[in-house]
Simulated scan of single mutants.
Amino acid sequence: MTKLSVNVNKIATLRNSRGGDFPNVVKVSSDIQDFGAEGITIHPRPDERHIRYKDAYDLKEIVTTEFNIEGNPIKKFMDMVLEIRPTQVTLVPDAVDAVTSNAGWDTIKHQDFLQEVISEFKSKGIRTSVFIDTDFKLIEAAAKTGADRIELYTEDFATQYELGNKDAIIPYTKSAELATELGLGINAGHDLSLNNIKYFAENIPNLLEVSIGHALITESLYLGLENVINMYKYKLKV
Score class of each variant (00 low, 15 high):
residue 142 A to R: 01
residue 96 V to P: 00
residue 61 E to C: 05
residue 70 E to N: 07
residue 153 Y to M: 09
residue 20 G to M: 03
residue 216 L to A: 08
residue 19 G to T: 04
residue 183 G to P: 00
residue 58 D to I: 01
residue 182 L to Y: 06
residue 237 K to G: 09
residue 67 F to H: 02
residue 228 V to F: 02
residue 223 L to V: 08
residue 152 L to G: 04
residue 238 V to L: 07
residue 70 E to T: 01
residue 70 E to V: 05
residue 211 S to N: 15
residue 212 I to H: 00
residue 166 K to H: 07
residue 181 E to V: 14
residue 34 D to R: 14
residue 49 R to E: 10
residue 40 I to D: 00
residue 62 I to N: 04
residue 29 S to E: 02
residue 81 V to A: 04
residue 203 N to V: 02
residue 54 K to F: 06
residue 230 N to I: 00
residue 132 I to K: 06
residue 148 D to W: 08
residue 28 V to Q: 00
residue 174 K to N: 15
residue 156 D to M: 04
residue 180 T to Q: 12
residue 70 E to L: 06
residue 215 A to D: 10
residue 74 I to F: 14
residue 108 I to F: 03
residue 126 I to Q: 03
residue 192 L to G: 06
residue 234 Y to F: 14
residue 180 T to E: 11
residue 112 D to N: 03
residue 123 S to K: 13
residue 55 D to P: 06
residue 32 I to C: 06
residue 199 Y to K: 09
residue 112 D to R: 03
residue 89 V to H: 04
residue 221 L to I: 15
residue 48 E to F: 10
residue 69 I to L: 05
residue 73 P to H: 02
residue 121 F to S: 04
residue 165 N to Y: 08
residue 195 N to S: 12
residue 1 M to E: 12
residue 94 D to K: 04
residue 113 F to I: 12
residue 182 L to K: 14
residue 102 N to Y: 11
residue 6 V to R: 02
residue 153 Y to Q: 09
residue 198 K to I: 02
residue 120 E to H: 12
residue 196 N to V: 07
residue 68 N to T: 11
residue 93 P to Y: 03
residue 163 L to P: 00
residue 117 V to P: 07
residue 77 F to K: 00
residue 101 S to P: 00
residue 161 Y to E: 01
residue 36 G to C: 10
residue 204 I to N: 01
residue 133 D to V: 08
residue 222 Y to H: 12
residue 169 I to N: 11
